[in-house]
Simulated assay, not measured.
Amino acid sequence: MTSSAVPGDTPDQQPGEGLRADAERNRCRILAAARSLYARAGLGVSMASIAREAGVGQATLSRRFPTKDALVAAVFAERMDAYAAAVTVALDDPDPWHGFTGYLHSVCAMQAADRGFADVLTRAFPAAKALEARRAEVYDGLLELIARAKNTGHLRDDFTHQDVVILLIANAGVVTATGDAAPDTWRRLVAHMIRSYAAPGAPIPPLPEAPPPTALYRAMVRLTRDTTV
């Protein structure tokens, strides 16, 4: 009798320590594959592609992670910890305006480093309770950070927490569109947005140079190819 199992795919019916070790190895392979694919291509990567990259069958992937939300939550647990730590660092800054601008730059840098995480910060995952709890924790800290920055007189009174979400959505789009062709473009976007948030007289960071026209053209060509495949 022949087996149709994918190499590296271990059925869950075998008892004993060997099963637990194999199951853990499969879980680690799935997480590594998902982390790599999401970082390069965002959350649009299919579960089937992740299973192939991990060298396991889709049944094994489904046993380890019954839903995509569960997989996303496991893959980005550490990233969400870093996301929460960023607002803590900002709140610890003795200069609330500097803490606020530093927070925006840090979070947008996280997006630029990982397309999957760029998507995570602009989507909701109701079934991933731990991930959403972390997001809620950051939200509470962000509200305090915004209030402190306004009290300095440097952040515009009409700025709201929704503006941070808008920035993250815009930055995710820039990161996706420019890719490796113009990888630092997001820095100029963030600098421009911080300038728009600043009240008159507020200290603002220098504006990074614009990407070369040739780099933006390459990004546009790549984006066109991606959307026509």
Results as ranks from 00 to 15, higher is better:
residue 56 V to M: 07
residue 94 P to D: 10
residue 35 R to I: 05
residue 51 A to M: 03
residue 113 A to S: 13
residue 71 L to K: 09
residue 58 Q to N: 13
residue 113 A to Q: 12
residue 86 A to M: 03
residue 118 A to E: 06
residue 122 T to A: 13
residue 78 E to Q: 09
residue 66 P to I: 03
residue 124 A to L: 12
residue 66 P to R: 13
residue 85 A to T: 10
residue 112 A to K: 00
residue 117 F to D: 01
residue 108 C to K: 03
residue 55 G to R: 04
residue 37 L to F: 10
residue 125 F to I: 05
residue 71 L to T: 04
residue 62 S to C: 12
residue 63 R to M: 11
residue 120 V to R: 01
residue 49 S to G: 15
residue 87 V to S: 00
residue 59 A to E: 15
residue 37 L to M: 12
residue 40 R to I: 12
residue 40 R to V: 13
residue 71 L to N: 07
residue 99 G to Q: 02
residue 76 F to M: 05
residue 65 F to V: 05
residue 121 L to I: 14
residue 66 P to Y: 10
residue 75 V to A: 02
residue 111 Q to A: 03
residue 85 A to G: 09
residue 93 D to F: 03
residue 114 D to P: 02
residue 85 A to S: 11
residue 77 A to M: 07
residue 74 A to L: 11
residue 47 M to Y: 09
residue 114 D to E: 08
residue 125 F to M: 07
residue 75 V to I: 10
residue 103 Y to H: 14
residue 81 D to F: 02
residue 83 Y to C: 00
residue 37 L to H: 08
residue 34 A to P: 07
residue 108 C to F: 03
residue 117 F to R: 02
residue 90 A to F: 05
residue 100 F to L: 12
residue 102 G to Q: 06
residue 37 L to E: 15
residue 85 A to K: 08
residue 32 A to I: 07
residue 56 V to H: 06
residue 102 G to W: 05
residue 111 Q to I: 02
